[in-house]
Design a protein around this nucleic acid. Structure first.
Length: 423
RNA sequence: AGAGAGGUGGCCGAGUGGCUUAAGGCGCACGCUUGGAAAGCGUGUAUACGGCAACGUAUCGAGGGUUCGAAUCCCUUCCUCUCUGCCA
């Protein structure tokens, strides 16, 4: 959520910056400023009314103690009017505050200067590319065929017990998945991130905190009996650990990593691009989250990008890094780098990580602040990234490492797997 | 799940309708004192919103209500603890 003060101070700059997302916010911004003015004006009137009322009450108390009941009763009548007035003003205030909040919910984050203009994924800017794309032998297969051939993932079995998009991993497939999770967590821990195990269901307040609610209500599985949501990413429980906190400078930066399964309804996603592991309702992911001082958040973002690079280098997977354009940038993000692994057998790039700086956008909803060196309380910057999302990494390994003899295991994973070949 | 007890500032803790502008203590910060420190003394020490400011308003787990006035009374709800039950 954007801050009203910023909108008040830099109206035109913000409209220009948001235009990079391909949206015209002039109208909404004007309405925001109007609602803000209404809210402030009404609050001033309400405060004044309440102040009068408080004064009368004190007087009445003193009169009663002195035994001047008659005078007290006279004053009581006056306060009745004030009460009516404050009731009306309170309603007006709530109305203006709600209107303001609703309007603010519709505004996405301000894109960083580096964000290229553009409307969709075709306008994303490739900023880095590394790794050799292997030349596969005749008869190479996409991962869903390989999964069947070596009996390591059973999609039909998942359909039987739950539905489409809930695969069952089996034997060396399950072991490889577990190996990847351990490897990722170890890499993140070595880089200084503290490992957490967090709940996989969250309450409504957490959904609002990180911005999944109210906009993306339909994307989460909702357990209505207890009013809890299955997490679509570890970002939600991890970032919400700090909801409402007022941190000391010495607490920063906060760096966390967590492995969780992720649940996404993915309503309306069908077609060839969702085959196999490409898009699932349940998948595993290891996430990294940072809470940073505003002065340091972009250096931290670069650090996260380097960290993910390092992992992909070790896995020896061909990948590229995209700087998302305005049209493709997530609602809450100011700057996002997507990592894509090249899936040779499918001849396409698969997104396996997304690393973002949200600046104060999430912190504003979360009320996540820190006490700066000047003694003032300020909103912190929050960042997160996948390190990494499992299924597409798995798909990349299966497809790029396939040989006529079987699927080789990347060297760094062998100690975690206990085998070096799936055959 | 049942019975009982609770939730007050950074922490402990008093507070059953108006001298509460939340006592007192601890901690922390600054000052005095000192060769230096400790002790002692003094001052200060929450958050949000509005205001250039003085200041005002709100907040005693959360949300409603009663009252001229609520930390205090009533209702709802969440959470914690103790005992009992159930359970991996």
């Amino acid at each position: 959520m954007l801050q009203v003060n910023d909108i008040r101070d830099h109206k035109d700059k913000m409209i220009t910056a948001l235009a990079k997302r391909g949206i015209d916010t002039k109208q909404v911004i004007e309405e925001v400023l109007q609602a803000d003015e209404d809210r402030r004006g009404t609050q001033a009137k309400l405060d004044e009314t309440l102040a009068q009322s408080n004064n009368f009450s004190k007087e009445i108390g003193m009169l009663f103690q002195k035994g001047e009941t008659q005078k007290a009763n006279l004053l009581k009548e006056k306060t009745g009017q004030l009460k009516e007035k404050s009731k009306v003003l309170t309603e007006q205030l709530n109305e203006a505050a709600d209107r303001l909040e609703q309007l603010l919910y519709t505004l996405p984050n301000i894109p960083n200067e580096l964000v290229p203009a553009g409307t969709d994924e075709n306008d994303n800017e490739e900023v880095f590319k590394e790794g050799e794309i292997p030349v596969l032998k005749e008869g190479s297969l996409p991962h869903w065929e390989l999964a069947k051939k070596y009996d390591i993932i059973d999609f039909e079995l998942g359909v039987k017990i739950t539905g489409a998009g809930f695969p069952v991993y089996k034997g060396k497939g399950a072991r490889l998945q577990r190996a990847l999770i351990s490897y990722f967590l170890d890499k993140n821990t070595e880089a200084g991130y503290t490992e957490f195990q967090v709940p996989h269901l969250v309450n409504e307040a957490s959904g609002y905190g990180t911005g999944q609610l109210p906009d993306k209500e339909g994307q989460m599985y909702h357990s209505t009996v207890d009013d809890l949501y299955l997490i679509p990413t570890a970002e939600v429980p991890v970032t919400n650990m700090f909801r409402g906190d007022l941190l000391n400078l010495t607490d920063l930066p906060i760096t966390c990593t967590a492995y969780t399964p992720c649940f996404r309804r993915e309503a309306g996603s069908y077609g060839a691009h969702v085959r196999g592991l490409n898009r699932l309702h349940q998948f595993d992911k290891v996430e990294i989250v940072r809470i940073e001082h505003p002065d340091n958040s972009y250096a931290a973002l670069d650090g996260m990008v380097d960290h993910v690079k390092d992992i992909l280098r070790e896995l020896k997977l061909p990948y590229r890094i995209l700087r998302l354009c305005g049209g493709d940038l997530g609602f809450t993000s100011a700057l996002t780098y997507d990592f894509e692994v090249f899936s040779t057998a499918q001849d396409r790039w698969l997104e396996i990580s997304s690393v973002s700086n949200f600046e104060t956008f999430q912190a504003n909803r979360l009320k996540l602040r820190f006490k700066d060196s000047d003694g003032k309380n300020k909103l912190a910057h929050s960042l997160n990234g996948s390190a990494l999302a499992l299924p597409r990494v798995l798909a990349g390994i299966l497809e790029n490492y396939q040989t006529p003899e079987g699927i080789k295991i990347p060297e760094v994973l062998v100690p975690y797997c206990g085998f070096n070949m799936i055959d």
